[in-house]
């Protein structure tokens, strides 16, 4: 009985962990490319979720179409934000330190803008929920119950994360993005269009967040404030070291599993404090996170 509870909690934890990992990846690729912490990461998740619901629930589009449309629309949204807001601020270049702070504040602006925009749409006035991505009876593995939709979420997340890994590892544009984040000046000198790369990273990150929103939507009620889930993604990223993509995946999984274990064995009320507890534990034992570079203090 104990073993079953443990396995069941771990299985559910992996599902939410996958979603945290995707949002954490979105935040971390922007941080690595631009040193900006994107405080609008959660709102991009929220917009992705609402967009998915709108396409399926309101316009009646088939789900595969929605799963393609959401990342495309979010890519354009993310790239446009970089081009129209961040690009302009960076071109004025008052001073490097001031610029950096301004850019971070601009992401807080985006967060509020997106929340306000979604609240302004009449369709979002009611609390809604996205119907399951896949229907059908749950699958039993031994005595552990697995929802088909949860399996779909894990599979989709795995495909997306593998694709992302292969993109950065094996393709020339992926390597150019890594080069730009390692040394932007050298990237410019070899003829890599640095501004375009930055824009693509924002697009890519927004796509990831949007897809995470679509995965999260069937499990959660949709509200304009559901972007608060980003706190958990930040936690996952910090556990992983904040600059490591595998760290995001491991951090997300640890967090998801821990939350479920705490919920099952300690108390459901304790779930909310779990992320902070895990962060403190990890930072005490390994200040740089599980996969992070060495510790450094940066003034913002």
């Amino acid at each position: 009985m104990l073993m079953l509870k443990l396995l069941q909690a771990a299985a559910s934890g992996v599902v939410t962990g996958c979603i945290y990992a995707m949002i954490a990846l979105s935040v971390v690729i922007i941080y690595k490319a631009t040193e900006i912490v994107n405080f609008a990461g959660g709102e991009l998740v929220m917009v992705g979720a609402w967009l998915g619901l709108l396409l399926v629930g309101y316009f009646g589009l088939p789900r595969p179409v929605m799963l393609l449309a959401v990342p495309v629309v979010l890519f354009v949204l993310g790239a446009a934000f970089d081009r129209l807001a961040l690009g302009r601020i960076a071109r004025r270049r008052p001073s490097r330190r001031l610029e950096h702070a301004t850019l971070v504040v601009a992401t807080i602006g985006l967060s509020n803008l997106l929340k306000g925009a979604v609240r302004g749409i009449p369709y979002t006035q009611e609390v809604r929920r996205l119907p399951p991505l896949i229907g059908g009876a749950p699958i039993f593995v031994g005595d552990v119950v697995l929802e088909r939709q949860d399996l779909a979420i894990v599979a989709l997340a795995a495909v997306v994360m593998l694709a992302l890994w292969a993109f950065f590892r094996y393709t020339l544009p992926g390597k150019a993005l890594r080069a730009t984040s390692q040394n932007a000046r050298a990237a410019a000198l070899v003829g890599i269009p640095v501004a375009g790369m930055r824009m693509s990273v924002w697009g890519l990150a927004a796509s990831l967040s949007g897809l995470a929103g679509v995965m999260l939507a069937p499990k959660l009620l949709l509200t304009p404030d559901m972007g608060d889930v980003v706190t958990l993604a930040f936690a996952a990223a910090i556990i992983g070291g904040f600059t490591s993509l595998p760290g995001c995946v491991v951090g997300g999984a640890i967090l998801g599993i821990m939350q479920n274990l705490v919920g099952t064995f300690i108390a459901p009320q304790a779930i909310a404090v779990t992320p902070f507890f895990v962060i403190m534990l990890v930072l005490l034992l390994r200040p740089q996170g599980l996969f992070g570079d060495t510790v450094g203090v940066r003034r913002v």
Binding site: L172, K175, N183, A187, L189
Partner: peptide, 23 residues
């Protein structure tokens, strides 16, 4: 060819060269 060590430190030597041919 800039001054100092303006390379991509965590990419392989070959990838550094390939990116030199980005254009």
């Amino acid at each position: 060819v800039p001054e100092g060590r303006e390379i991509f430190p965590r990419l392989s030597v070959e990838d550094n060269l390939r990116l030199g041919g980005w254009t």
